[in-house]
Write a protein that binds this DNA or RNA. Structure first.
Length: 426
RNA sequence: GGCGGGUUGCCCGAGUGGCCAAUGGGAGCGGACUGUAAAUCCGUCGGCUUAGCCUUCGAAGGUUCGAAUCCUUCACCCGCCA
């Protein structure tokens, strides 16, 4: 059996770690209980969080015990890291709901391997459970005494904000203490000895290590994943300015699948080892194929396939693939049968219209392909609007009777990739 | 608590009384070229019942024929001093 650390290095999942020799020895001794935290700052996890799960899954496959912390408490405070302004505080009820939704995101990622391969299922914890009843006195006396302000100020996340125009509130300044305390609680409650996270969390991870050493006298470990960016320096997981969510209610499996398919060549090759759990030889072969025949987009297809299956399941993957073939294939739309068209457009997104038919511009807006009528008109003017694959000349025209495709559908497209269906109502 | 600087469209950043829906850059979007890539070039980039109209320049008032630009108050941010 190969060393899990070796695998993680091969895949580029480790950017930082505490003493690696010690960590390697620790992991070799037997099952290690490790944790990673996610703050509920949105209703769903997104593609950027997926990197953490690739690491968590690799450790799980190696026989270790994952603990997933959802930050019901820290989500109320706000991590100053990686941002140049203060966070807007969210309401407690909202954060509580997000905690639940995020747990649902995690299920297929860590529970399925447990069910299907007999690996250890994740333990879920919420730091609100031990943070909420902490009194200000206890917090300051029992925990705060262990922190030196000079060290806290030196953390990148804090100093960056101190040097920014926005500054930093005492609330967010305290964040690292809360996260450090989480590590200590999990060490006590579950024997956690390894925390993983993004390398932008490094200051918070080491704060926890210091606290555990100081108060428990134990040496515990941390591992940081690299920050994944596109070739031009953007954060991973944005498409058309929107976030690529894992929750199917926020982003359809079809759109999720399309996102990976559209990743550019450079990024696809770079990301493949990170996100693809296939054998090393297969990954290398896919990259080699991409160099030779980039148009085949082998890495993109592998990413789309593996990740859609991982996050949404086999059935959703099959539907997303079929929809993509139908909408982007070379076949004439009119030659598609009603069933295929219906399945494809349902995946892609559609609206139903009854009664009097709106203009094409209005339909573009109703399907969400554009956000305003002005934008619809502009798109038509720019030659970027298509009805049934034919460029629209007049946005104020109403589609004719002959435009309806089998099953009672109109296919609207904006630009090359954004497609939506309009279905005739009763 | 005192003094000074600041708050402009998704972001950065010009603009100090009319020519400002607001220069420029970036992001985004569309077109051409391609491979549902990248780079490049061109166009576009508040909203609407779009030759016109409406709402924007931290918030609220005020001066003026007319304000993002002047005055007052408030909020927030940064710096120096106490």
């Amino acid at each position: 059996m190969t060393d899990v650390i070796d695998e993680l290095h091969r895949r580029g999942l480790i950017a930082l770690s505490t003493d690696e020799a010690a960590l390697r020895a620790h992991l070799a001794e037997g099952p290690v209980t490790y944790y990673c935290g996610f703050d509920p700052t949105a209703p769903s996890l997104h593609v950027g969080n997926l990197v953490q799960f690739m690491l968590l899954r690799a450790l799980q496959r190696a026989g270790h015990q994952p603990v997933v912390l959802v930050g019901g408490a820290t989500g109320l405070i706000g991590d100053p890291g990686g941002r140049n302004s203060e966070r807007q505080l969210n309401d407690r009820e909202v954060v509580a709901e997000w905690v639940e939704r995020i747990r649902r995101n995690v299920r297929p990622l860590l529970e399925r391997p447990a069910e299907e391969s007999g690996l250890r299922p994740p333990i879920y914890v919420n730091n609100l459970d031990w943070t909420e009843q902490l009194s200000a006195i206890d917090f300051l006396r029992a925990i705060g005494k262990n922190f030196r302000v000079s060290q806290m100020l030196a953390k990148e996340a804090v100093s960056a904000r101190l040097n920014s125009e926005a500054g930093i509130s005492y609330t967010e300044f305290s964040y690292q203490i809360l996260q450090a305390n989480d590590y200590r609680e999990l060490y006590r409650r579950h024997g956690v000895t390894l925390q993983t996270g993004g390398s932008d969390q490094w200051g918070n991870l080491t704060a926890g290590i210091d606290l555990v050493r100081r108060t428990e006298g134990a040496g515990v470990h941390a591992m940081g994943t690299p920050l994944i960016t596109t070739a031009d320096g953007q954060k991973i997981g944005k498409t058309q300015g929107a976030t690529v969510w894992l929750d199917p209610e926020l982003m359809s499996p079809y759109a999720f699948h399309q996102y990976w398919l559209n990743v550019d060549d450079v990024d696809a090759r770079a990301w493949l080892p990170l996100f693809c759990e296939r054998p090393a030889e297969d990954v290398a072969a896919l990259i080699a194929e991409s160099e030779e025949r980039p148009a085949a987009r082998a890495p993109q297809r592998a990413l789309a396939e593996d990740l859609t299956r991982l996050v949404h399941g086999d059935q959703e993957l099959a539907q997303a693939e079929a929809a993509g073939r139908a909408l982007f294939g070379r076949d004439d739309l009119a030659s598609l049968d009603a069933g295929t068209l219906t399945a494809a457009l349902t995946e892609a997104g559609s609206v139903t219209v009854d009664g009097e038919l709106p203009t094409i511009a209005q339909l573009l807006q109703q399907t969400g392909l554009v956000s305003s009528l002005s934008e619809a008109r502009r798109t038509v003017k720019e030659g970027g609007a298509y009805l049934n694959n034919e460029r629209v000349a007049d946005g104020d025209a109403v589609p004719g009777e002959d435009a309806w495709l089998p099953g009672g559908w109109l296919v609207l497209r904006r630009g090359k990739r954004a497609v939506a269906g309009v279905r005739r109502g009763a």
